[in-house]
Simulated scan of single mutants.
Amino acid sequence: MRCIDGENELILTCETQAEGVCILRCETRDPVVLLPDEIDGAPVTALGRYVLSGRAPDLSGRDTFSVRVTCGGPLPVHEADSIRAVTLPKHARTVGSYAFYNCRSLEELTMTDSVSAFDGGSLMNCLSLHRIRLLAPPGGATCLPKILGETASELDVRFLHGDTCTPLLFPAYTEELEDLSPAHIFQRRIHGAGYSYRQCFDGAALNFRQYDRALSELAERHDFAIAARVAVRRLAAPFALSDSARADYLAVLREHGGPLACALAKQGDSVSLHVLLSLSVLSDAGIDAACTAAREAGQTAALSVLLAAAGPSKPRGRAKTFDL
């Protein structure tokens, strides 16, 4: 077995294909997995079926070779439940079906816009997945619609291009089949605005105008907490944001930004708090409530951001009592 230096302990079973190398199986117990971009000078262009799942693929009859990626640790025994974050090879084009099947602790996937095929079942039972990092410009074609089609859970999506981060939120939704007895005809029912957000694409490229229009459905459903979280992300990095959409998002935050500020304060999310405060949409009472939330949660950095927003000319009655 050949060995290459890396940042993980991985046992790779690979196959040489016309376009490059396909990783058919990756065995690891590392929580953060960085798959290699190249093997023996050839780009890694594909990930096979069940590549990281708890179930091993059937590789009988395949012309394979093995590679150990090591950073000096012990030989790994595969534990799919240990995996929390995976970065795909930068040249990867395809991700095979059931690639992350039963990776129940998987929280984050990072990939480039080279990935065009994300096959069915790839994210089955990835119940912890909540963040997608796309190393791509926000207006370009990516595999995002296919990823969104694989999960109905809420996803925090971040387009990372150069020094720019464009964060977006895709809300969750649920669906059920209702048996229309006695004919046993099933009617599909969808609950939640997340389904509409998943339709905002022109082919493989996100249509930001359609994405912004989906805010109205959140308002109709009275999903104001989700609407505020969508709004603060769009206003933080307003790529292709129209003046009317900006006004709609600001209106949401003026009306419902207070509870969001409290939630961010409890989480210690100082970056998002700073964005929210910079928009001047919070009332004094809202800032006071967020200060209280930060103090009770012991989030000193968040509390500092909130107190700085008050300014020396606006002393807050509770500010002198924030002993942490």
Rank of each mutant, 00 (worst) to 15 (best):
D248F: 10
R104W: 07
E38H: 14
E178P: 00
V67P: 01
E175C: 14
A308W: 00
G61N: 05
V281L: 03
L253T: 11
R213I: 11
S60Q: 11
P138A: 14
G54W: 00
A251N: 14
T87H: 05
C200Q: 04
G121C: 06
A214F: 08
N207D: 04
M111V: 07
A290Q: 01
P259K: 11
E9P: 00
F208G: 09
V21H: 03
A227E: 01
G121I: 07
H191P: 04
L264Q: 06
A290W: 03
S114G: 08
H78A: 08
T300L: 04
V95G: 09
L12H: 03
T300K: 06
R2F: 09
D40F: 09
L34A: 13
G96F: 10
L218C: 12
E176D: 14
V157F: 00
H222D: 13
D284E: 11
P259Q: 11
L215Y: 07
R209W: 08
L106T: 13
T151L: 03
Q187E: 15
R246H: 02
G72V: 06
T174K: 13
A231G: 11
L218V: 09
A261Q: 07
C71Q: 15
F322H: 09
S122E: 01
A261H: 06
T174D: 15
N207R: 00
L264N: 04
P312F: 10
S244F: 10
F208Y: 10
R104Y: 08
L47Y: 06
N207C: 07
D288A: 14
A46I: 05
G20Q: 02
A18P: 01
A301N: 03
A294Q: 01
C26H: 11
E217Y: 08
R84Q: 09
T13S: 14
P312Y: 09
A236W: 01
D163F: 13
T16R: 07
R29M: 09
T13G: 12
V281I: 03
C103T: 09
L253H: 05
S53L: 01
F170Y: 13
R62F: 15
S272V: 08
Q17P: 01
S313N: 12
S66T: 14
I287W: 01
T292Q: 04
S122N: 08
L235S: 13
R84E: 10
V232L: 05
S153I: 10
S313Y: 08
S278C: 12
P137F: 12
A308E: 02
A297C: 03
L88T: 12
G268H: 00
I4Q: 07
S66N: 14
R233K: 12
P137G: 12
T87E: 00
G48D: 04
V44R: 01
G192T: 11
L307N: 03
D63P: 03
L168M: 12
G162H: 12
L282E: 01
L250H: 07
L303S: 11
T70W: 02
P36T: 12
K90Q: 11
V33D: 00
S242F: 04
S270L: 04
T142P: 00
R131Y: 02
P137S: 11
V252P: 03
A204E: 01
E15T: 06
D81I: 08
V21G: 05
G61L: 07
L12D: 04
L250K: 08
I39V: 14
R93L: 07
C103N: 09
A92L: 05
A56V: 13
S153Y: 13
S278M: 09
S116R: 08
G72W: 00
